[in-house]
Design a protein around this nucleic acid. Sequence first.
DNA 1: TTGTACGCGTTATCAA
DNA 2: TTGATAACGCGTACAA
Lengths: 327, 327
Amino acid sequence: MREVARQAGVSVATVSRALNASGPVGEETRRRILETAERLRYVPNRTARNLKRVATETIGVLLPDLYGGFYSEVIRGAERAARAARYHTLLASAHDGLPELVRALRTLVGRVDGLVVMSPDIEADVLRKNLPPGLPVVVLGGAVAGHGSVAIDNAAAAEAVTRHLAGLGHRRIALVSGPAPNADARARRDGYRRALAEADLAPDPVLELAGDFTEASGRAAAASFLALSPRPTALFCANDAMAVGALQALRDAGLRVPADVALAGFDDIPLARYVTPALTTAHVPIDEMGSQAIDAVLRAVRGDAPAPPAVTLPTRLVVRESCGARL
Amino acid sequence: MREVARQAGVSVATVSRALNASGPVGEETRRRILETAERLRYVPNRTARNLKRVATETIGVLLPDLYGGFYSEVIRGAERAARAARYHTLLASAHDGLPELVRALRTLVGRVDGLVVMSPDIEADVLRKNLPPGLPVVVLGGAVAGHGSVAIDNAAAAEAVTRHLAGLGHRRIALVSGPAPNADARARRDGYRRALAEADLAPDPVLELAGDFTEASGRAAAASFLALSPRPTALFCANDAMAVGALQALRDAGLRVPADVALAGFDDIPLARYVTPALTTAHVPIDEMGSQAIDAVLRAVRGDAPAPPAVTLPTRLVVRESCGARL
DNA sequence: TTGTACGCGTTATCAA
DNA sequence: TTGATAACGCGTACAA
């Protein structure tokens, strides 16, 4: 910049004004400066600008993982919203629990104007201790006191899926639940139980199979499912990844879906409609969760709103072939 | 930081040394500083640190799009490699051609230590004019003079797929090619033609259907395919997204794959093995392209290498059900 | 072992 | 309309 100023015969202040159109600059001077900058291939240093402006035009997105259709949809939605607002997304992932989460949080500080955090079990305390007060934060899929959130009603959606299964005539409906400490997993299990009660079906602990939201755990759970006697006629997996794994295992075992077993998932990841049979599932507007989270953060960043709001996005049951007709 | 120094009764320099372990600090002093920082919830400002260090610990990743299984794999690989090196990934996408690309390039400058760029038709000139000289750049899927690159041998891989089809006994093999100006698309078409020539099959322009790498264009191409007479017995789509689209259209038209038509794709996106029948395809190590690109940039950033290298990753033919047995 | 003081590249304030 | 200069928050010689 100094060099541009020197060669154009002006001061750095004038160069700054010319390039940012942030102040009065003589027409002739302006031309000369722009031309010189072009010739020297000068591109302003964003870091210095950020330091001065106390703003980075960047929103951090912290995800627990990047694998599978779910997180890529979140990223896509987030990047879309950020781009529309001329913001950037700084992507980070933290797999290994708390220490990793803390590390990621702290390295993000100072390089972002706001944060979207998705973490299975985020606690208010962790955020408070590792983030400067005043940094707008939106929690994705969950709610933390004092911060904005974008989530869905997991229990209601799981209840709808289970009710659908019951409505089809199924009376023994097994569940592959998510990891026990996970709030989403717990809420979905609660919805499942609620729907059973509604349908006057006795809850049976044996029908609740353990999973951890991975495809592999879905496969494993299907094996346990097959060992059940009498075998349930329907299987509800607490997310699509596990449903896909279960579908493969079921098929490998010679069972037909939905003829022998009705199968339902949760999330409606892109893959859900591509497998055969396509998955009946609770549709979660995943990319919209990403974009709404960014929008919420941005509103707070820009001061349009005092604090990010708590948004609950609607889900809907999507019935596809994996559930078949009435029993 | 000033506040921490004040409350701890030391100078900011000592605070800096204590927090970064970058110089001698008395044990007692150190403890007091850390405790004060903790209490004040002080987190160093990354922007200022970056300005001083002339490094941002961030690699920019510029993608043409974020949709579909391909780009999310790239992102995943890139983030994994960056994270391993304690770097961040700044994600940007540029859909709408050159102006958008230039804008994205320029807003990335100064906030990244290096750049991974994936763009259908990137030109050396565009990079040279919009990036400061010396910024390490790795081009993904393509090669640009003066920059590093991570790519695959598209022609050889397409040739292998086509040869496999011919080896199965197919004599009329149609191609759904990618968009004409795209270098990858052209190379794959060349490989297809080469394999035909090898197998003494006459090239036939009618067999080359137009596509644009989207699933929808695969569906459309399948329609054209069905209008061909005599109908070819095999269909090679220049990427998996189109193959998935074609598969659906073929099935909707009442054709069985592979009994009536053998189908092959390219890329081996995660979805390829989930559709029914699973796709025979040219396996491209997509996430590895992302991680290798990051690694190459990092080597240049750290000065381990003078300039990023040109890497060609191996592909391999993955035979799955969509191609069936010998005719 | 600690503190002082300078500079990283910008933008913003103020005086000219 | 322009230029000199003071920050922005940090790291780091260098001196103490």
